[in-house]
Design a protein around this nucleic acid. Structure first.
Lengths: 338, 338
DNA sequence: CATATTCTCGCAACCGTTTTCGTAAATAAA
DNA sequence: TTTATTTACGAAAACGGTTGCGAGAATATG
């Protein structure tokens, strides 16, 4: 067991611990000769500094927290990749926490983040979250917070999102242009800005085209377990939608399965477009038209902002609202009838 | 900013820091009355203990590291979920590290894990890894290590895998039973036991059925970027395989795309089966036959073992080889011609 | 040669908690 | 009442680094 710490090195070289510490940190106070000796011994004995001792003294943990609703979702997986890629270059460590879409969990997690364990927090809030109290507390403790994708609107801090309103509009117009007259929007939350904004865009498009109110359905698929049933019910209803916009990736599979089960043809009977970063989109039956979010880039950008906030306390995160646009990738699932 | 620590509480209540510390930890040495006062003040001032100070003193970090090749993969995402679900109940924190399938990265990560930052390590090794040196060092430092899915065979420690050999056999037999005579196995590594074992099963099945050597292709798709091209080349070759076994999830999309592009019909021209936990498998074109790995359960089991190893130093991990079987889910992509 | 500077290094406090040990007061036993 | 015992707490030393400051030696400056 390597109990080798600074004290051991000091002993061995007949130097003081402070000298060792400074030598290892390449301080100008130490002669090159001594530095060399210290470094050499350190590598020879496989000295590895204890990060917690250092954190305690320096009040910096070189660690960030990433709080997200779930990880079994391509969007979040890719975002983590983006975050990690930046953290790596900065020498930061990444703690992952999952809220499982529950506000109570999120609260507990964020409380812990006040402990000094992390220098900053990247968060995509749960679909239940309606209050920014916990995040305010973090900010009061000088812990920078950056939202990515799912933000809490009342909080003043940096956020990296995609052009949700516009994409809602684009998605709706896409359906309308392909002949839909009764499009429905499948949301997962009544409070998440990403959903609200996309819905606003959706509504605006229908408004403009003059689709009657009765034919503008917005459906809330809040519960994961009942989603499939709920979608089947919708597809069997009298005024069955002729177009569906899936607000998030996890709605896609139940929609497709329901259509297959009910012998409803995509795109002839109902056209489907989804907000998703699914890499199987092109090989689905039929290939799925997506609004593809730049998940990796969002993660990278959010992390970059967070580190700016961490490293320069003068940097004002509150005005940083970055929008990275998504792109519509048209495939078979929304092909117009011919 | 809450600079409230034990010292502040002590000051406020005119007690010593040791008394506060003991009261908070509900020590028998402290009177109920004092405990109550301390607790009350602690919650009132929103006292949150500094984990690093505690870690330093107790030499326990209540943190584990999860080292994996990548996170944009359903298998690993689900595994993380499983790990996290156990860590949560145990009050542990989870650091995520990505090797990006590079041994050099993995090495750096594992070196850092010797610092005392973590109490244990869960790892699924990179496809490049051929040496167990780094992991030996961890063990020498009394840091328990548990493998999940991708193991390094020379290391004596707990591992949670699935029945790879058997599944290789099952997958191959499945193809053979559906009429394939020139099945190919698409691997991603020449050293990973998961691949080697699956290949062994594959070979055994072909052997038994008497498929000639020349018709037992094992193809190594090591490079992510060239995978699509490589697969196309294979599908255009003279002795084109009539069945494909994708050893991991990420091979699926390129295979399907290549077949579509080349107008090769699945399952009539080539049958496809994949080791995957893809939840879009049933809605692919055609629905994909999978060997579905119990990713979530593997994560849970591995974490459970790791915590046993962490919490009781007497617990001998070295003999814990847990195998959680995968299941074959048959779908259209391997339907027999009729 | 005297004084000022620069170069190296050690001392000791500190970060926030935990834990051992000692001890005064309160209670029980004799 | 005296002697054990228990109860409730405090002092201080850890844990492993970091850092401000002081000081001796070496060098430069006048």
């Amino acid at each position: 067991m390597s109990k080798v710490n600074i004290k051991v090195l000091a002993e061995e070289l007949q130097l003081s611990v402070s000298t060792i510490s400074k030598a290892l940190r390449d301080s100008y106070e130490i002669s090159d000769e001594t530095k060399k000796k210290v470094m050499e011994l350190a590598t020879r004995l496989n000295y590895i500094p204890n990060p917690y001792a250092s954190s305690l003294r320096k009040k910096k943990s070189k660690t960030i927290a990433v709080v997200l609703p779930e990880v079994a979702d391509n969007f979040f997986s890719l975002a983590i990749n983006g975050i990690q890629s930046i953290a790596e270059t900065k020498g930061y460590h990444v703690l992952i926490y999952l809220s499982h879409e529950k506000y109570a969990n999120e609260k507990t997690i964020l409380e812990d983040c006040q402990s000094g364990r992390v220098d900053g927090v990247l968060i995509s809030i749960s679909s239940e979250t309606k209050s920014g109290d916990q995040i305010h507390k973090l900010q009061a403790n000088n812990i920078p917070v950056v939202f990515f994708d799912r933000e809490e609107e009342s909080i003043e801090t940096a956020r990296v999102t995609t052009n949700d309103y516009e994409c809602g509009l684009i998605a709706a117009n896409h359906l309308l242009n392909r002949g839909c007259r009764r499009p429905a929007f499948l949301s997962i939350s009544e409070s998440l800005p990403i959903c609200l904004n996309r819905i606003e865009g959706f509504k605006a498009a229908l408004q403009e085209t003059g689709i009657p109110d009765a034919d503008r359905q917005i459906i809330y698929c809040t519960d994961n377990d009942s989603m499939y049933k709920q979608i089947k019910t919708i597809l069997q209803s009298d005024n069955r939608p002729d177009g569906l916009i899936a607000s998030v990736e996890k709605i896609v599979t139940p929609v497709y399965l329901a259509c297959h089960e009910l012998n409803i043809n995509i795109p002839n009977d109902v056209k489907v477009i989804a907000f998703a970063t699914l890499d199987t989109a092109p090989i689905l039956d039929p290939p799925l038209t997506t609004i593809t979010q730049p998940a990796f880039e969002i993660g990278k950008a959010a992390a970059t902002l967070l580190f700016k906030g961490i490293e320069k306390s003068t940097f004002d995160l509150s005005k940083e609202h970055m929008v990275i646009p998504s792109v519509l990738i048209e495939r078979e699932s929304t092909r117009a009838a011919n």
